Computed example of a mutant assay.
Amino acid sequence: MFSKTTKFLLPVLAGALLLQSCGKKDEFHTTANGLTYKIYKQNEDGKYEPKGEVAANDTTGARIGQVVTMHMSYRNANDSVLFNSRDQKQPIMIPVMEPTFKGSLEEALTMMAPGDSGIFKINADSLFTKTFGQPLPPFIKSGTDLTFFIKAEKVQSKEAAIADQQKMMEEQMKGAQERAEKQIKVDDAKIQEYIKANNLQNVQKTESGVYYVVTQQGKGAQAKAGDMVSVHYKGTFLDGKEFDSSYNNPMSGGQPFQFPLGQGQVIRGWDEGIAQLKEGSKAILLIPSPLAYGEQARGEQMPANSILRFDVELVDIK
Protein backbone atom coordinates (compact mmCIF):
# COMPACT_ATOMS: atom_id res chain seq x y z
CA MET A 1 0.00 0.00 0.00
CA PHE A 2 2.77 2.41 0.91
CA SER A 3 5.44 1.06 -1.43
CA LYS A 4 8.07 3.26 -3.02
CA THR A 5 6.25 3.09 -6.34
CA THR A 6 3.23 4.92 -4.92
CA LYS A 7 5.29 8.10 -5.11
CA PHE A 8 4.83 8.04 -8.87
CA LEU A 9 1.09 8.45 -8.41
CA LEU A 10 0.79 12.18 -7.97
CA PRO A 11 -2.35 14.56 -8.31
CA VAL A 12 -3.67 18.23 -9.14
CA LEU A 13 -5.03 21.34 -7.54
CA ALA A 14 -8.51 21.99 -8.93
CA GLY A 15 -9.32 25.54 -9.91
CA ALA A 16 -7.29 28.67 -9.39
CA LEU A 17 -6.06 29.54 -5.91
CA LEU A 18 -7.97 32.44 -4.39
CA LEU A 19 -5.31 34.75 -3.04
CA GLN A 20 -5.82 37.50 -0.51
CA SER A 21 -3.17 39.96 0.51
CA CYS A 22 -1.86 39.39 4.01
CA GLY A 23 1.26 41.47 3.81
CA LYS A 24 3.23 38.69 2.06
CA LYS A 25 4.03 38.69 -1.62
CA ASP A 26 2.73 35.96 -3.88
CA GLU A 27 6.14 34.79 -5.04
CA PHE A 28 8.31 31.69 -5.21
CA HIS A 29 10.83 30.94 -2.48
CA THR A 30 13.76 28.53 -2.52
CA THR A 31 14.98 26.35 0.34
CA ALA A 32 18.66 25.83 1.18
CA ASN A 33 18.38 22.49 -0.66
CA GLY A 34 17.21 24.17 -3.86
CA LEU A 35 13.47 23.37 -3.69
CA THR A 36 11.45 26.18 -5.29
CA TYR A 37 7.98 26.60 -3.80
CA LYS A 38 4.91 28.66 -3.08
CA ILE A 39 2.62 27.62 -0.22
CA TYR A 40 -0.82 28.98 0.51
CA LYS A 41 -2.90 28.64 3.67
CA GLN A 42 -6.58 29.22 4.26
CA ASN A 43 -7.63 32.22 6.29
CA GLU A 44 -10.69 32.46 8.52
CA ASP A 45 -12.87 33.20 5.48
CA GLY A 46 -11.73 30.00 3.79
CA LYS A 47 -9.77 31.87 1.12
CA TYR A 48 -6.14 31.16 0.27
CA GLU A 49 -3.33 33.58 0.98
CA PRO A 50 0.45 33.28 0.62
CA LYS A 51 2.11 31.60 3.57
CA GLY A 52 5.43 33.17 2.74
CA GLU A 53 8.85 31.68 3.35
CA VAL A 54 8.85 28.55 5.52
CA ALA A 55 11.56 28.62 8.17
CA ALA A 56 14.02 25.73 8.23
CA ASN A 57 13.01 24.92 11.83
CA ASP A 58 9.26 25.04 11.11
CA THR A 59 7.55 21.97 12.63
CA THR A 60 3.96 22.52 11.47
CA GLY A 61 4.34 20.35 8.36
CA ALA A 62 4.24 16.57 7.95
CA ARG A 63 6.96 14.56 9.66
CA ILE A 64 8.88 11.55 8.43
CA GLY A 65 6.84 8.41 9.15
CA GLN A 66 3.51 10.18 8.80
CA VAL A 67 1.14 9.84 5.82
CA VAL A 68 -0.20 12.77 3.81
CA THR A 69 -3.64 12.41 2.22
CA MET A 70 -3.76 14.84 -0.67
CA HIS A 71 -4.90 15.80 -4.10
CA MET A 72 -1.98 16.36 -6.41
CA SER A 73 -1.10 16.87 -10.04
CA TYR A 74 2.14 17.42 -11.84
CA ARG A 75 3.06 19.00 -15.16
CA ASN A 76 6.08 18.97 -17.43
CA ALA A 77 7.94 22.01 -18.74
CA ASN A 78 5.39 22.36 -21.57
CA ASP A 79 2.63 22.71 -18.95
CA SER A 80 1.09 19.38 -19.99
CA VAL A 81 -0.69 17.65 -17.12
CA LEU A 82 0.90 14.23 -16.63
CA PHE A 83 -1.20 13.11 -13.68
CA ASN A 84 -4.17 14.45 -11.73
CA SER A 85 -5.64 12.62 -8.75
CA ARG A 86 -8.94 14.42 -9.19
CA ASP A 87 -9.46 12.46 -12.40
CA GLN A 88 -9.65 9.40 -10.14
CA LYS A 89 -12.24 11.17 -7.99
CA GLN A 90 -10.36 10.40 -4.80
CA PRO A 91 -7.26 11.67 -2.98
CA ILE A 92 -4.08 9.66 -2.70
CA MET A 93 -2.01 8.74 0.34
CA ILE A 94 1.77 9.12 0.33
CA PRO A 95 4.04 8.26 3.27
CA VAL A 96 6.64 10.86 4.19
CA MET A 97 10.06 9.23 3.84
CA GLU A 98 13.66 10.36 4.11
CA PRO A 99 14.53 12.68 1.19
CA THR A 100 16.10 10.85 -1.74
CA PHE A 101 17.92 13.98 -2.95
CA LYS A 102 18.17 17.68 -2.12
CA GLY A 103 15.06 19.57 -3.18
CA SER A 104 12.96 16.39 -3.35
CA LEU A 105 9.25 15.70 -3.20
CA GLU A 106 9.72 14.34 0.32
CA GLU A 107 11.03 17.75 1.41
CA ALA A 108 7.98 19.39 -0.16
CA LEU A 109 5.65 17.21 1.94
CA THR A 110 7.40 18.19 5.19
CA MET A 111 6.49 21.80 4.44
CA MET A 112 2.76 21.09 4.15
CA ALA A 113 0.31 21.35 7.05
CA PRO A 114 -3.28 20.05 6.74
CA GLY A 115 -5.30 22.46 4.58
CA ASP A 116 -2.25 23.95 2.84
CA SER A 117 -1.94 24.15 -0.93
CA GLY A 118 1.44 24.33 -2.56
CA ILE A 119 3.25 24.62 -5.88
CA PHE A 120 6.68 22.97 -6.05
CA LYS A 121 9.28 22.81 -8.81
CA ILE A 122 11.32 19.60 -8.67
CA ASN A 123 14.18 18.54 -10.92
CA ALA A 124 12.86 15.85 -13.27
CA ASP A 125 16.17 14.00 -13.70
CA SER A 126 16.72 13.60 -9.95
CA LEU A 127 13.09 12.68 -9.30
CA PHE A 128 13.07 9.81 -11.79
CA THR A 129 16.56 8.43 -11.15
CA LYS A 130 16.71 8.80 -7.36
CA THR A 131 13.07 8.59 -6.24
CA PHE A 132 11.26 6.57 -8.90
CA GLY A 133 14.29 4.49 -9.93
CA GLN A 134 13.24 4.80 -13.58
CA PRO A 135 14.69 6.38 -16.73
CA LEU A 136 13.32 9.75 -17.75
CA PRO A 137 10.30 9.30 -20.09
CA PRO A 138 10.60 10.76 -23.62
CA PHE A 139 7.86 13.32 -22.92
CA ILE A 140 9.94 14.92 -20.14
CA LYS A 141 13.01 16.86 -21.25
CA SER A 142 16.26 16.33 -19.35
CA GLY A 143 17.33 19.34 -17.30
CA THR A 144 13.78 20.60 -16.75
CA ASP A 145 11.58 20.76 -13.68
CA LEU A 146 8.24 19.10 -13.00
CA THR A 147 5.73 21.40 -11.34
CA PHE A 148 3.66 19.79 -8.59
CA PHE A 149 0.34 21.16 -7.33
CA ILE A 150 -0.51 19.73 -3.92
CA LYS A 151 -3.54 20.17 -1.66
CA ALA A 152 -2.84 18.53 1.71
CA GLU A 153 -6.07 17.31 3.27
CA LYS A 154 -4.80 15.21 6.18
CA VAL A 155 -1.51 14.46 7.91
CA GLN A 156 -1.78 11.25 9.96
CA SER A 157 0.06 8.36 11.47
CA LYS A 158 0.41 5.29 9.25
CA GLU A 159 -2.12 3.42 11.42
CA ALA A 160 -4.74 6.17 11.12
CA ALA A 161 -4.17 6.40 7.37
CA ILE A 162 -4.67 2.64 6.94
CA ALA A 163 -7.94 2.84 8.89
CA ASP A 164 -9.08 5.77 6.74
CA GLN A 165 -8.18 3.93 3.54
CA GLN A 166 -10.14 0.85 4.59
CA LYS A 167 -13.16 3.01 5.36
CA MET A 168 -12.81 4.81 2.01
CA MET A 169 -12.59 1.50 0.13
CA GLU A 170 -15.73 0.22 1.88
CA GLU A 171 -17.59 3.40 0.93
CA GLN A 172 -16.40 3.12 -2.67
CA MET A 173 -17.51 -0.50 -2.90
CA LYS A 174 -20.90 0.36 -1.44
CA GLY A 175 -21.30 3.25 -3.88
CA ALA A 176 -20.25 1.10 -6.84
CA GLN A 177 -22.74 -1.61 -5.85
CA GLU A 178 -25.58 0.90 -5.56
CA ARG A 179 -24.77 2.36 -8.99
CA ALA A 180 -24.56 -1.13 -10.49
CA GLU A 181 -28.00 -2.02 -9.12
CA LYS A 182 -29.49 1.04 -10.80
CA GLN A 183 -27.60 0.49 -14.05
CA ILE A 184 -28.62 -3.14 -14.42
CA LYS A 185 -32.29 -2.06 -14.41
CA VAL A 186 -31.58 0.44 -17.19
CA ASP A 187 -29.64 -2.18 -19.16
CA ASP A 188 -32.33 -4.81 -18.66
CA ALA A 189 -34.91 -2.58 -20.32
CA LYS A 190 -32.58 -1.96 -23.27
CA ILE A 191 -31.87 -5.68 -23.65
CA GLN A 192 -35.59 -6.49 -23.67
CA GLU A 193 -36.11 -3.89 -26.41
CA TYR A 194 -33.24 -5.46 -28.36
CA ILE A 195 -34.72 -8.94 -27.99
CA LYS A 196 -38.08 -7.73 -29.30
CA ALA A 197 -36.57 -5.70 -32.16
CA ASN A 198 -34.45 -8.66 -33.30
CA ASN A 199 -37.24 -11.22 -32.78
CA LEU A 200 -35.06 -13.50 -30.64
CA GLN A 201 -36.89 -16.67 -29.58
CA ASN A 202 -36.55 -19.01 -26.58
CA VAL A 203 -34.68 -16.37 -24.58
CA GLN A 204 -33.75 -17.33 -21.03
CA LYS A 205 -32.32 -15.26 -18.19
CA THR A 206 -30.03 -16.06 -15.26
CA GLU A 207 -30.95 -14.87 -11.78
CA SER A 208 -28.37 -12.06 -11.91
CA GLY A 209 -29.47 -10.76 -15.31
CA VAL A 210 -27.60 -12.47 -18.17
CA TYR A 211 -29.89 -13.23 -21.11
CA TYR A 212 -29.01 -16.22 -23.29
CA VAL A 213 -30.39 -17.99 -26.33
CA VAL A 214 -29.20 -21.51 -27.20
CA THR A 215 -29.16 -21.54 -31.00
CA GLN A 216 -27.66 -25.04 -31.30
CA GLN A 217 -27.92 -27.55 -28.47
CA GLY A 218 -24.74 -29.48 -27.81
CA LYS A 219 -24.66 -33.19 -26.98
CA GLY A 220 -21.74 -33.09 -24.55
CA ALA A 221 -21.50 -32.56 -20.80
CA GLN A 222 -22.87 -29.51 -19.04
CA ALA A 223 -20.20 -26.93 -18.27
CA LYS A 224 -19.59 -26.38 -14.56
CA ALA A 225 -17.35 -24.32 -12.31
CA GLY A 226 -13.78 -25.62 -12.31
CA ASP A 227 -13.90 -26.99 -15.87
CA MET A 228 -11.34 -25.77 -18.39
CA VAL A 229 -13.47 -24.64 -21.31
CA SER A 230 -12.59 -23.68 -24.88
CA VAL A 231 -14.88 -21.08 -26.44
CA HIS A 232 -15.06 -19.48 -29.86
CA TYR A 233 -16.76 -16.10 -29.75
CA LYS A 234 -17.59 -12.87 -31.51
CA GLY A 235 -18.28 -9.84 -29.35
CA THR A 236 -20.44 -6.94 -30.53
CA PHE A 237 -22.31 -3.99 -29.07
CA LEU A 238 -26.08 -3.83 -29.45
CA ASP A 239 -25.64 -1.64 -32.53
CA GLY A 240 -23.81 -4.52 -34.23
CA LYS A 241 -20.32 -3.03 -34.06
CA GLU A 242 -17.77 -5.79 -33.47
CA PHE A 243 -15.11 -5.21 -30.81
CA ASP A 244 -13.47 -8.65 -30.48
CA SER A 245 -13.44 -12.13 -32.00
CA SER A 246 -11.55 -15.35 -31.38
CA TYR A 247 -11.87 -16.28 -35.05
CA ASN A 248 -9.54 -13.53 -36.27
CA ASN A 249 -7.46 -12.80 -33.18
CA PRO A 250 -3.80 -12.76 -34.30
CA MET A 251 -2.60 -13.36 -30.72
CA SER A 252 -4.33 -16.75 -30.55
CA GLY A 253 -3.97 -17.68 -34.20
CA GLY A 254 -7.73 -18.03 -34.56
CA GLN A 255 -7.92 -20.72 -31.87
CA PRO A 256 -10.74 -20.90 -29.27
CA PHE A 257 -10.24 -18.99 -26.04
CA GLN A 258 -9.50 -21.23 -23.03
CA PHE A 259 -10.20 -20.36 -19.39
CA PRO A 260 -11.22 -22.04 -16.10
CA LEU A 261 -14.96 -21.57 -15.68
CA GLY A 262 -16.31 -19.91 -12.53
CA GLN A 263 -12.94 -18.71 -11.27
CA GLY A 264 -13.34 -15.02 -12.04
CA GLN A 265 -10.85 -15.14 -14.92
CA VAL A 266 -13.39 -13.59 -17.29
CA ILE A 267 -16.25 -11.13 -16.91
CA ARG A 268 -19.04 -12.37 -14.66
CA GLY A 269 -21.50 -12.51 -17.57
CA TRP A 270 -19.28 -15.09 -19.28
CA ASP A 271 -18.86 -17.23 -16.18
CA GLU A 272 -22.64 -17.32 -15.79
CA GLY A 273 -23.57 -17.60 -19.46
CA ILE A 274 -21.14 -20.38 -20.43
CA ALA A 275 -22.26 -22.37 -17.36
CA GLN A 276 -25.72 -22.66 -18.98
CA LEU A 277 -24.32 -24.55 -21.99
CA LYS A 278 -23.38 -28.09 -22.90
CA GLU A 279 -20.27 -28.98 -24.84
CA GLY A 280 -20.90 -28.37 -28.55
CA SER A 281 -23.57 -25.72 -27.94
CA LYS A 282 -23.83 -22.43 -29.76
CA ALA A 283 -25.56 -19.51 -28.09
CA ILE A 284 -26.12 -15.77 -27.89
CA LEU A 285 -25.23 -14.06 -24.60
CA LEU A 286 -26.64 -10.61 -23.84
CA ILE A 287 -24.74 -9.18 -20.90
CA PRO A 288 -25.72 -6.02 -18.97
CA SER A 289 -22.80 -3.71 -18.28
CA PRO A 290 -22.47 -4.38 -14.50
CA LEU A 291 -21.83 -8.04 -15.40
CA ALA A 292 -19.36 -7.02 -18.13
CA TYR A 293 -16.90 -4.11 -17.80
CA GLY A 294 -19.14 -1.84 -15.75
CA GLU A 295 -18.86 1.91 -15.38
CA GLN A 296 -15.14 2.06 -16.19
CA ALA A 297 -14.44 2.84 -19.84
CA ARG A 298 -11.65 0.82 -21.44
CA GLY A 299 -10.50 3.33 -23.99
CA GLU A 300 -12.51 4.34 -27.04
CA GLN A 301 -13.01 0.67 -27.90
CA MET A 302 -15.14 0.00 -24.80
CA PRO A 303 -17.23 2.93 -23.49
CA ALA A 304 -18.51 2.95 -19.92
CA ASN A 305 -21.74 1.01 -19.22
CA SER A 306 -21.57 -1.00 -22.44
CA ILE A 307 -24.12 -3.77 -22.93
CA LEU A 308 -22.45 -6.62 -24.79
CA ARG A 309 -23.59 -9.38 -27.13
CA PHE A 310 -21.47 -12.49 -27.55
CA ASP A 311 -22.12 -15.18 -30.15
CA VAL A 312 -20.36 -18.16 -28.57
CA GLU A 313 -19.60 -21.79 -29.30
CA LEU A 314 -18.57 -24.05 -26.41
CA VAL A 315 -16.03 -26.14 -28.32
CA ASP A 316 -14.53 -28.25 -25.55
CA ILE A 317 -14.74 -29.02 -21.82
CA LYS A 318 -11.94 -30.60 -19.80
Rank of each mutant, 00 (worst) to 15 (best):
D227G: 07
N305R: 10
S21D: 15
V266T: 11
A56F: 05
E300R: 15
K182V: 15
E170K: 12
A77L: 05
V229N: 02
S117V: 15
T69K: 11
E279M: 13
G118W: 04
G133D: 06
G220E: 08
M72E: 13
V54M: 06
K182G: 14
L17Q: 10
E107C: 04
G220S: 09
V96A: 00
E44G: 13
G61A: 10
D227E: 13
Q166R: 09
F243C: 10
I284C: 12
K234I: 14
E153M: 12
K130T: 04
V203I: 12
V12C: 08
P137G: 11
P138T: 11
I317C: 12
L277A: 06
V312S: 10
I195L: 02
Y212W: 12
F139M: 14
I64Y: 01
M168P: 00
I64A: 04
L286Q: 09
N78F: 06
E295K: 11
E106F: 01
Q201R: 13
L10Q: 11
V96R: 00
L200H: 05
Q201Y: 02
I150N: 01
R75Q: 10
E153Q: 14
K7F: 07
K282Q: 15
V155H: 03
R179T: 10
L146R: 02
F120R: 01
E49P: 07
V67D: 00
L82K: 15
N76V: 08
I122N: 00
K4D: 10
H232T: 13
T206C: 01
K130G: 02
N84F: 07
V266N: 04
S208I: 00
G209P: 00
L17M: 14
I64E: 09
T31K: 09
T6Q: 03
Q204S: 13
A283K: 07
V155M: 05
P256R: 08
Q222T: 11
L10N: 08
I64P: 01
P260K: 14
N84L: 07
S230K: 14
K151P: 01
K47G: 06
N248D: 11
S21P: 11
K154Y: 03
T59R: 13
Y194W: 08
N123D: 15
G34V: 03
P50S: 05
L35G: 03
A283G: 13
D188H: 09
K51W: 05
G253P: 03
T60L: 05
G235C: 08
L285Q: 07
G65L: 02
V312N: 05
D187V: 04
A163S: 08
E272H: 00
